[in-house]
Amino acid sequence: MVVKTEWLVRGAVESVFVVGSILLALAVDEWAENRDFAELADQSLGIFEQELVQNRDRVEDGLPYHQGIRDILGQMVATPPPVIDLRRIMEGLETPVLLNTAWETALATGALTHMDFDVVRALSLTYSIQEGFTSRSRSDRPRIGTGEEMSPADFTAQVQQAYDYVAALTRDEAELLTVYQQALQLVGRYHGTAPPERAETAADNN
């Protein structure tokens, strides 16, 4: 009887140890997995931050130039220039090339699912606005005629169209800069870094 009791006690203790070991192993595994996911999310936030800074710098770099073009086109609306001048201005006009690699990578790796919802929502909004900007700056760009087939009234209308396009472009760029700045603040809060400083920008002079 004593032997049987000892066996039962030993069995119970061993069972507790086995189950405890399994639970501990599972807990350690889950902890390691959570840590990996947290690292992935943090790494992604770092990449988002770098990309947003690059995109912001590109917009910031082009904005004063576009504002200058806008002001010159504004003067041209009152006194239309030779067609060649308008064509040259519009041909030289470049819109910033903006990256969305971080967003695509985060989607592909599933990193977004491990981030705070507020950050994901802000990033989604940022990239949507950015995509809308890129799309509009491409599709709304006016094509300037050669001048031979245009009446003076038509040409004046083209100058106005070019002005409207560049004015909208600068407005969109100023808005995009604000969006980037806010997104960077939010990402910095979760990533644990202060948002990178920006110099006085043309948006401030808009």
């Binding site: 710098d57 770099d61 082009g62 010159i72 001048d85 040259r88 201005i89 041909e91 030289g92 910033p96």
Partner: peptide, 14 residues
Amino acid sequence: EVAAGPKLVYSADM
């Protein structure tokens, strides 16, 4: 190292 290259202008007047 830079956000973009120089901005192109097609004439001295511009």
